[in-house]
Design a protein around this nucleic acid. Sequence first.
DNA 1: CTGAAAGCGCTAACAA
DNA 2: TTGTTAGCGCTTTCAG
Lengths: 351, 351
Amino acid sequence: MVWDMTTMKEIAQQTGVSVSTVSLVMNHRDEGRVKAEVASRVRETARKLGYKVNPMARSLRTNSTRILGFISDEVATTPYAGGMILGAQTAASRFGYMLITVSTDDGMKEDNEIDALKRYGTDGFLYAKMSNRITDVPAKLLDYPLVLTDATDVNGKVPSVEPDEFSIAYDATTYLIKAGCKRIAYVGCSEPLLAQEGRLAGYRAAIAEAGMPFDDKLVANVVNNGPALRAVSRLFDSEHPDGFFCFNDARAWYVYECAARRGLTVGKDISVVGVDNHRVFAETLEPQLTTVELPHFEMGYWAATKLISMIENRPMNDIEWPKTTAPLTPIDAPIPAKIHCTLLEKGSVAR
Amino acid sequence: MVWDMTTMKEIAQQTGVSVSTVSLVMNHRDEGRVKAEVASRVRETARKLGYKVNPMARSLRTNSTRILGFISDEVATTPYAGGMILGAQTAASRFGYMLITVSTDDGMKEDNEIDALKRYGTDGFLYAKMSNRITDVPAKLLDYPLVLTDATDVNGKVPSVEPDEFSIAYDATTYLIKAGCKRIAYVGCSEPLLAQEGRLAGYRAAIAEAGMPFDDKLVANVVNNGPALRAVSRLFDSEHPDGFFCFNDARAWYVYECAARRGLTVGKDISVVGVDNHRVFAETLEPQLTTVELPHFEMGYWAATKLISMIENRPMNDIEWPKTTAPLTPIDAPIPAKIHCTLLEKGSVAR
DNA sequence: CTGAAAGCGCTAACAA
DNA sequence: TTGTTAGCGCTTTCAG
């Protein structure tokens, strides 16, 4: 600590009271225990001296540091982590907490990092994945307050915050229908992600609700690279869709590539709604692509808020929803849907 | 703290020595002060009991927490922060430090966050930008050990770690030349970024070294969206380049789009080397695009290492370079160049 | 070589 | 209503 902080002792001396009195006042536990006049004198000197509590010293007594541990994989390999971290940090900061972020992508051994975090007195953990997966939570975490973020506990015990995948696709598809599309393709992901299930269901529901037939020839679940591009090419040539729901940026790119090769213009000849962070498209395109943004910020925010409510053992009722992060770029209005984010309270955890 | 850690007291009791002796041993300050036999007995019980020092308690005495503060903007809006955070965390963890990450993009007031970090006893700061800019460092940071990451101090006083932009473009261009390209375009950025200067210089140097004339009609500095796309279109039609150096993913996308519209295939009819994280292209394309990856991980790693060396006041000589994060996807070999990263030691800082 | 004692800044039980 | 005391886990003189 380079900077010298003023201590309670100093306040006590300046005010002519004891340290315990100062402690009571600074912790707002003075109601009916310290004379109001004394209390306000204490507060005044504290203000004058710019007193800030020393969390380290406090934690030595209270076993509570107001530090949250944020554990995630892939922070370096996906662009999503940032939003989640920012959301979590925003909530943390709002309640006077700090976030220690550790990621386990590299050589970092997860258990070691967890141990280190525990040594630093972390009050609870956020365990994040970069896309919703059934997750086997590390045992080392289970005896702490814990919230999963964009992940689902394999045992359904640990509370989690997840995106509402169904609504994402439902809203996007409805948007395409309202735009007048008649043959709407679903360009999805053939890996077994939770998002894939939910979104395909949302797509089907929207189609059905509009009285349109479901045609599985319009569904192309692909992985990547050449095979994906060829699958989307076939979709273009045999089905001639006029609307595309795309699982993410990468899938949307196949559609763009195929359209360009056929002299079709997105936003004129075909319509595309893509899910995701739309970073590349936001920078490259005229606003032709309608995007549903995944609520990473919100998930982080809510997960942290939930975690704090567990740590402090108090309800979250009065906590308002944060304003959503603004889209990077103006988007072809109207935006397909409000961004949903489901907060699942599946149970609580041993303390 | 939920978990009960074993304390020095317990070790002392079990071993039948005093706490001070244990402290001496656990801190490797026992040389010539504690009998070797006793020391090893202490170490043995410590091992048996799984002793880990309590950093909070220690910091109360030592004023050193082994916590590093990582401050950056835009963690949520760029995909780069993750790599830098991971690099910094990897280095930190290697030396027994922890990273507290705060980002200042949202409503977070930077000075408040810095104060909070200081209260938590942060030993020093990493101040990061998401692309190298001349940076006016917050005054609140100047009395602490401090390293800039992907940023340059406006006063040239604060040490910084930056990417070697010149070499990036030099290597990429040389790669295109060796591949047989005769008319190599530079698709750059018209915003005044440090990267732009350095890379254009690297491009020119490579061109010159190959005895090729520099033709500024081959240089297209663009911003984004429609105007950018049209500028690249003009470049295609009037200059017919056969090789492209692209400032980043977004610029590379314009080249792809234009190529597709003209029936040209990247990797066959034209060659492209793009700088950046190539996340989208890695997932979407066959390996046609050669990529120079920006050393975000390395910058984070080195900046943290440098910072620790400042905090502990010891040289960095014996510290080896980390293995670079693996590319997401196999890349058209040979990779254009090793990734350079310059470590600038511009001076030291008041403690 | 080793241990007793003091104290880092704070909180909490208890006396006064 | 307030102060005294003890102690969180650790480091650091200072005696022995």
